[in-house]
Design a protein around this nucleic acid. Structure first.
Lengths: 376, 376
DNA sequence: TATTTTTCCGTTACCGCACACGGAATTAAA
DNA sequence: TTTAATTCCGTGTGCGGTAACGGAAAAATA
């Protein structure tokens, strides 16, 4: 059981022992723009011009400089760069508005985290919220963002066509954008951070059924009049249904629609559901973030015989988990998605490097009453 | 459902509308050292002296400058700072050595992530490995690290007494250090990143038993001659046992010791275990990262009737999960722990700010065959 | 060929900070 | 009082870039 490599044992410490050029530390790269200029026989102004494609450089010099840059392995020092060019980068985030305790609040938290990171590089972040049920407000938001001439955009798309129109404009203005939550089928985006929706439904079904003898699964859904707006949880429901029909061919999947705005209405619907089927051991799923609606009902009715699975780490959901009205929660960490999105754009602006992966499917964490405390 | 705040709707874009002083953006802080100097009626050299406690400043000037700094809310620009002071910060990490596919490899991955972050701030990272079963090699490592005069240290402690001695020296030299994986009872550390061990055992038992009628739980352990070295999984086992005795008072917990170095020996022990108890439906737990040993055995023996739970996202463990020889894995993401540790020290060195929380218990992710793909 | 335009490039002044250097003012020693 | 030692502080240079400015060389036009 020897050390796999000698890194620790040898040069212990000194981060660049003189004469050593082992690439391990990759930090000794002290080649400056002046070195490049000298080696290319030009002035640093010229080098800077090719570095930023500012033109006014002869083809010959340009090639020479590019060659030298590659040979020397020159990489600009971005402290100096940021210091000298006092640009005001701005990244705008377009997300649905929300009330306290709702899903998109998590995303905003992530934006705050991202702001902290970006702030270190002199990049500011602003969030533009829109009503996810109101097309016009979305268009409004897009216009405002465009008007603010951002250096990058993070967007959680809800309206397909309008979003496509919007990102087309971004592309024309060479503004990089990254999708969070869900993405569209264009491929001009810099990156995407979201949950694998189909798989999350599949996973959810597995946790719900858990090898038991399940005859019926109740899917509770939000009654909404969708007017061309995309429902991201649709795919999730497909995954759920697929799992059931693969593993429990005789199991029914029944939909119940509830109203997010009226508690009485919800109770009535759920009462009906329970009345229609005498078996008190029910398997219940909610594919969006509002499983706390179900938990609230169960708590009030004193029903503890159901197995309930939901999504997302909302405070209300977690407390339902702790109280035992919900057995498991699947978390997608939309905060981390937002933060990663901002980080990706920041790095793109500062380091001129794209993210390693374009499509990033964040992990699906399974929470139960014993580990939920550690998810904030 | 109106926007919770008007941020998005109002100033849409402009990152600092003139006249607005809302702290939200916290970026507009353009007060330089020169502004401070002017306001205090001294030169920037003097301001610099008090900023760095370099002395040679009269009490009177010092106080005045400090006052002005506070009043103006001056915060140094750390690009300029790093650029001007070409210091060579070094963070050393002391962790156990490992072979490919073993637990500590994850930690090293995290160190690499941390290196990328720290590298941006001109900070280099080096890793010093030690044999976790050899006290002397640990002492060796500590000495080497001390000799390299690091600006900060990350340490995964295995030997209690020696570690305490070591961190005492660090403290004397004003070198900040952070614990990962486990921590000791001193409190001079800058931060700690690790898993809540007791809770992880408790959680593990919950997942293993899963509401079933469990009569006996088999805990597989590594036979090791411990000579005063601390076993971090001990606490985990305690949590496990506590859960069982709380929820399954009639359930036995039986230990089986296997040898990590000899497969035959392992098979023999496990054969014995299966022979001793005719019931093929066994509940098996391994409290360290090597549940793949059990999976390997089950695969070879063609046994599929057991419920097995283990820890950590090693490649072998994940494939056992996929193949169905292990039902669940609890992940502690030691990579993230290491990366966070490095980030914490980096921020401390650059921003002079400690981490928000000193003790950070990372989340315990539950992996099964349907979500494991998204954990790398 | 003389003049204008275009193309291309070097020079230079910062950006905000760190730190060396040298000098004025004050105090101690002679 | 003269000289030496302290104490305190301002100035200046450079870190590695950015970008404005102006001018020389080459090309186009007269």
């Amino acid at each position: 059981m020897k050390a796999r490599n000698g890194r620790g044992r040898s040069g212990a410490g000194r981060y660049r022992s003189p004469g050593t050029n082992s690439g391990v530390m990759e930090e000794g790269n002290k080649i400056t723009i002046n070195d490049v200029a000298k080696a290319a026989g030009v002035s640093k102004g010229t080098v800077d011009r090719v570095l930023h494609d500012r033109g006014e450089v002869s083809q010959k010099s340009r090639e020479k400089i590019l060659k030298v840059i590659k040979e020397l392995g020159y990489r600009p020092n971005f402290y100096a760069s940021i210091l000298a060019s006092r640009k005001n980068y701005l990244i705008s985030c377009i997300i649905p508005e929300f009330n306290n305790g709702e899903f998109w609040e998590l995303t905003e938290k992530g934006i705050d985290q991202g702001r902290e990171y970006a702030g270190r590089f002199g990049i500011s972040i602003n969030a533009v919220l829109y009503d996810q049920y109101d097309l016009e407000s979305f268009q409004d938001a897009c216009e405002k963002v465009l008007a603010s001439r951002p250096s990058g955009v993070v967007i959680a798309p809800m309206f397909r066509n309008e979003t496509l129109k919007f990102v087309k404009e971004l592309t024309e203005n060479h503004i990089p954008y990254v999708y969070i939550d869900s993405k569209l089928e264009d491929d001009g985006y810099l990156a995407y951070y979201g949950m694998p929706m189909y798989q999350s439904g599949y996973l959810c079904a597995d946790i719900l059924t858990d090898g038991r003898d399940v005859r019926k699964v109740h899917v509770i859904r939000i009654a909404r009049d969708k007017r061309g707006l995309s429902d991201p949880t649709l795919t999730r429901r497909t995954g759920l249904v697929d799992y059931i029909s693969e593993h429990y061919p005789d199991c029914d999947v029944e939909n119940t629609f509830i109203d997010p705005k009226s508690r009485e209405e919800r109770y009535r619907k759920l009462d009906e559901m329970f009345a229609s089927d005498p078996d008190p051991d029910k398997y219940i799923v909610m594919c969006n973030s509002r499983v706390h609606f179900v938990a609230e009902y169960l708590r009030d009715r004193g029903i503890r015989s159901c197995r309930v699975v939901g999504f997302d780490v909302l405070e209300k959901n977690v407390s339902a988990l702790k109280d035992g009205y919900v057995q498991a929660l699947i978390a997608q960490h939309s905060d981390r998605q937002a933060a990663s999105a901002i980080t990706a754009i920041t790095d793109y602006l500062i380091l001129h490097s794209g993210p390693q992966k374009k499509d990033n499917y964040t992990q699906m964490d399974i929470l139960n009453k014993y580990n939920c405390d550690y998810y904030l």
